[in-house]
Computed example of a mutant assay.
Amino acid sequence: MSGPIVRNYKGGSIVYFEKDKAEDIFVLQKGRVVLTYTNINGVELKEDVKLGEFFGVKSAIGRYPREETAQVIGAATVLVFKVPEFEKFVSDKTHLIIKMLKVFSSQLRQVHRQVREILGQGEAKNPAFELMNVAEVFYKNGNFEHAAYAFEKYIQHYPDGMYIDRAKQLIDLARKKTPFPLTIQELVYKPEPGSQTGKLQEMLKTMAVPASNTTSSVDPNSILSQYDKASTLMNAGKYAEAIDMFKTVSDRTDSVTQEEEQFVENSLFYMGKSSFKAKDYPSAISHFSNFIKRYPKGLLLKENLYHLALATEASGDKEKAKQLFQKVTQMPPMDDSISEDAKSKLKGGRS
């Protein structure tokens, strides 16, 4: 094993981008490196790497895409480890392992606290419910990959859980990137049988205590209600009506929360997708192009560009479509299904 290499960067250089494939681990030897990432609340944060500090560790060891962008400010020198080299390096350095565990543990606690704040939860209910709730929040925000991953973990850890049927239904829809269906009832907390809360509820039932008559009413004019209605119409093949409703959401100019903004963003994409399904390719191209102008860093940017390529191809402009498919293959992550489909189109394969 040859050991780490020294790499010098000029000012403004990017060590790695968010969502890049993670293979290397870095140590800042000289200069300044800033990590830029978006926290679970959707807020962009910056963090300086300290001299002698490792970065890029979690994604490299976990073999998942980078969660942040690392940029050099001024100029910098870093040591670059491959994972096996890094593992060998720290294997007999207990103090380094303990230090990293403390950092990771602190980060996990911060994420957990932020998740609870987003979900509006005070004290814990139960892990099964919380995992399902997190999965559905990701799903409703259009973060299909994270939602599918959370549903998968629920199915794995709670095969006999009370939400298992719901999880199996939603994971299939999330994997297909189908908008959260209006027909699914709101997730309701149910204490596990045998828990103290469950025993109390059972006791109240035997005492004939009347249940609360309050119901959660959903405002039909809320962004979520309109988005759900539009999604249902699109899934039913009523594309013209779906486009009108998605347009109502995308044109909302009133006070929009951070969570609602994701529905506004998604609506512009699904206007294009509905037009594409209706074979109205000029309108589809217009909607997909507007999405790129309005959300150049949107969560659905890559999928939007792929569908723009499909609509362009269907409208007869093969050369421009080819350029768009090529661009899709160059967007991270490079090994997802969208990239594979784009590569297939470039080779003249299936759509």
Rank of each mutant, 00 (worst) to 15 (best):
E265V: 02
M245E: 10
K30H: 13
V15E: 02
N8R: 14
K273N: 12
L170S: 00
G142A: 05
Q330P: 05
G122V: 11
I223E: 01
K19C: 01
Q110L: 15
D335I: 07
K199N: 12
Y306R: 05
R252Y: 08
E130S: 09
P65G: 02
P220N: 00
E259I: 14
Q185A: 13
E241L: 10
D251C: 04
D219S: 06
D48V: 07
A60E: 05
H146L: 15
E117C: 01
A342F: 06
L131I: 12
E260P: 01
Y281S: 02
L108I: 13
G237K: 01
L28M: 04
K279N: 12
Q196E: 15
T36F: 09
P332S: 14
K21P: 14
T232A: 15
S250D: 07
E123N: 09
I243R: 06
L96A: 10
G31E: 05
F138Q: 06
E136I: 13
A236V: 03
P84G: 03
G56P: 00
K93L: 13
F81K: 06
S267C: 01
Q262V: 10
V78T: 11
E123Y: 03
G316L: 04
I292F: 04
P179G: 07
P220V: 00
S13R: 04
G52R: 07
H146W: 12
Y158R: 04
V72D: 05
P193G: 08
D280P: 01
D244S: 10
S267W: 00
P181E: 03
G142D: 03
P179M: 06
L119Y: 03
K277S: 14
K343C: 11
K176E: 05
Q121H: 14
T38G: 07
S283T: 06
N143F: 09
T36W: 02
H112C: 10
V27N: 00
T69N: 12
I243W: 00
G120K: 09
F151Q: 00
E340P: 08
V15R: 00
I171T: 12
A284Q: 00
G349D: 04
P84N: 09
V83G: 00
Y139V: 03
L324F: 04
V134D: 11
I40P: 02
Y189W: 05
A148D: 08
A135H: 00
A135K: 03
F276L: 15
S106Q: 11
L108H: 08
M245T: 11
F89C: 03
F269N: 06
A230K: 02
A321C: 10
A240D: 12
D244F: 01
L101A: 11
P333K: 08
R109G: 09
A22Q: 02
Q29P: 08
S212Q: 07
V78W: 01
E260G: 03
